[in-house]
């Protein structure tokens, strides 16, 4: 993993969470633009995972593989579930879910960084 990418992902998660929380305050449901934002965050996490995978192979970076990829998998399922909920639940609760999902992805990404450095 590389630090600049971690910072970008964390900022993106924070921005998405703040946007969703703003909608909670306004009692609004998730809108399509927010889902596009969530897709961008998701893509950033994928890019980060690919970079990490390449670094593992090329630089032989030692890391607890199953733990690391388990966290990657968890980070990748959270936002799609929030997106499905956004279609099913047209109340402010979809915004609450999106905010929680964005914060969860940020937290999982932070854990990924710790796992990456721990081995």
């Amino acid at each position: 993993m590389v630090l600049p990418l971690l910072i970008v992902v964390l900022l993106a998660c924070a921005a998405l969470a703040a946007w969703a929380l703003w909608f909670v305050v306004q009692d609004r449901a998730v809108i399509l633009k927010q889902l596009i934002g969530a897709a961008v965050v998701e893509a950033l996490v994928v890019v980060q995972a690919v970079v990490a995978g390449v670094l593992m192979v090329t630089r032989d970076h030692p890391v607890d593989g199953p733990l690391f990829w388990g966290y990657v998998a968890t980070a990748l399922v959270v936002l799609p579930i929030a997106a499905i909920w956004a279609f099913a639940e047209r109340t402010k609760w979809s915004s609450v879910v999106l905010a929680v999902a964005a914060l969860t992805v940020g937290f999982l990404d932070w854990r990924l960084w710790q796992i990456w450095g721990a081995a």
Binding site: P66, L67, G70, T74, E89, T91, W93, S94, V100
Partner: peptide, 28 residues
């Protein structure tokens, strides 16, 4: 539905984390 949607989401995340953790522990 409603608030329950949030509850199901948080439960789902925790379930996923717990599955990941336990399968990792059982396997290794």
């Amino acid at each position: 539905t409603g608030f329950g949607r949030l509850l199901v989401t948080v439960y789902g995340i925790l379930a996923f984390a717990a599955i990941g953790r336990s399968s990792y522990e059982l396997a290794t």
